[in-house]
Nucleic acid binder design. Structure first.
Length: 445
RNA sequence: UCCUCGGUAGCUCAACUGGCAGAGCGACCGGCUGUUAACCGGUUGGUUGUAGGUUCGAGUCCUACCCGAGGAGCCA
């Protein structure tokens, strides 16, 4: 049997006799000519079975092949502009074939299906071209994230997933039984990161995070992946520089390495190409003004209702969506009201009602993909904040220690991987950005 | 938790003011040498989400419940 090749490398084998191992995902039958669309995980290729060129047995067997049957094809690679697929432009002139398993009738056909049906068959849906493209972009986003941090002085430090108590309130935590004591699935590694920077300077944690929010929207999962860097000797301005460099690198890496996939997804990449530093920066105060202005101008009564807000309120999805439509690039919104954010955020100098916080909002209506801030480094202020937020001091003794032994100004942020993938791919729902999404009322398959 | 929309064949949907439950796709059989979700002919296909009610008659109207989708709040 000729050497097995990967479909993604097919152009390098033009004219050669090769073997391809994969699955049939679609077919077109033309009498004495059959076009079998085969995928192998690395790409998609058309295999042409011509009655004159194969044995009667192979031709008959090819005719009987069902969608998703597993097979081993041998044949000659030839260039042909009519050949569909990814990378495309080459096809296999089949000379031999072995069927490993003749698949039963596959539930998912190459046509439209409803959301519920697809989600019930997520384990099979993954095989479709669209899901293949999205999840390859996801893998590239993850690689780019690690590449950037690993080459910018950050050390990867994993933080615990089972945690003792609430960082930001228990209502959104999944509780588990930890040998008779309650423990909670982590919703952030930040506090542990803050401990880690005192040993390593710059760190990042990267893992799944859990939120028991009863959110039922296109931008929420109960289990999602978040990367959280934390940096010693870093203020809010420096943090914003890191964010724009980092996000630009992720986007540009995807444009370079996943062009086929973005093309398959019919993603208009013109906006993505503009994602280079610096990003526009506006203060929360300014942003509130812009939202008020948009609200004034709109004729849409429902939108006017949704955009109602007062200074001090955090932005909701409608606000973010409208705001980002005003910018071609991601926008950094900084200086949120203290009461709208978490207890650990450093106050603005001479403006205690404002925090040194920053959110990064993706363009085209995608909204928040990063939330970050400079952290409180002063022991007394942190004690005061715990009290104001009604948090039990005992649970935070270790965290307070960090302000006792060589405290320094430090900052960090969290980037949601799924929201980033959704934006880069131009999707309208987060559920397609992770192989097996966990959502309100969805833990199967 | 709240608001809006929906549930009919394996899938995607149609069925007018209540009156014979249909089409396309798939599957199966046959035809076709360049198809791209091919095309042509044939075959196959139903507890209309569940329970109750109104009616001569309910997919259609009423009540309750279940399930799903989109949104709000909350957040990445």
């Amino acid at each position: 049997m000729p050497d097995t090749i990967r479909i993604e490398d097919i152009a390098r084998h033009a004219g050669e006799e090769v073997t391809i191992k994969g699955w049939l995902f679609n077919r077109t039958d033309k009498g004495r000519l059959q076009f079998l669309q085969v995928r192998d995980g690395t790409g998609f290729v058309q295999c042409v079975v011509f009655k004159k060129e194969v044995s009667a047995e192979v031709f008959a067997e090819a005719r009987a092949l069902t969608q998703e049957s597993s097979l081993i094809m041998t044949g000659t690679v030839r260039e042909d502009s009519r050949a569909p697929g990814i990378p495309g432009g080459y096809e296999l002139g089949v000379t031999g074939m072995r069927v490993l398993q003749q698949a039963e009738e596959h539930p998912i056909q190459p046509k439209e299906h409803g959301v519920e049906f697809l989600m019930d068959h997520r384990h099979l849906w993954l095989r479709s071209q669209r899901q293949w493209a999205i999840l390859r972009v996801r893998a590239t986003v993850i690689r780019a994230i690690r590449d950037w941090f690993d080459t910018h002085g950050f050390v990867n430090m994993d933080t615990p997933i089972l945690t003792p108590a609430a960082c930001e309130g228990t209502t959104t935590l999944f509780e588990t039984d930890y040998f008779g004591e309650p423990a909670y699935l982590a919703q952030s590694g930040q506090l542990y990161n803050e401990a880690d920077i005192y040993a390593f300077g710059r760190v990042y944690c990267f893992g799944p995070t859990f939120r028991a929010e009863k959110s039922k929207t296109r931008r929420h999962l109960t289990e999602f992946w978040m990367v959280e860097p934390e940096v010693a000797f870093c203020d809010l301005d420096q943090l914003m520089e890191i964010e724009e460099q980092f996000v630009s690198y992720i986007v540009q890496t995807c444009l370079r390495d996943r062009a086929h996939e973005l093309d398959l997804l019919e993603r208009d990449t013109s906006y993505l190409e503009k994602v280079t530093p610096p990003f526009p920066r506006i203060s929360y105060d300014e942003a509130v003004g812009v939202v008020a202005e948009i609200r004034e101008q709109t004729e849409d009564e429902d939108l006017r209702q949704l955009l109602a807000m007062e200074w001090g309120d955090d932005f909701g999805s409608p606000h973010e969506t409208e705001l980002t439509k005003r910018f071609e690039k991601p926008v950094l919104v900084y200086g949120y009201p203290t009461r709208a954010k978490a207890f650990y955020m450093e106050p603005w100098p001479d403006r205690p009602e404002v925090s040194k916080s920053v959110d990064l909002l993706a363009p085209e209506g995608y909204g928040e993909i990063i939330g970050g801030s400079e952290r409180i480094s002063d022991y007394d202020l942190l004690i005061q904040r715990l009290r104001e937020w009604g948090l039990p001091r005992e649970a935070f003794e270790w965290y307070l220690d960090l302000r006792r032994y060589g405290s320094v100004p430090h900052s960090g942020f969290g980037l949601g991987v799924e929201r980033t993938v959704s934006w880069i791919c131009g999707l309208d729902h987060l559920r397609e950005t992770i192989p097996f999404p966990r959502m309100l009322k969805r833990v199967y398959p």
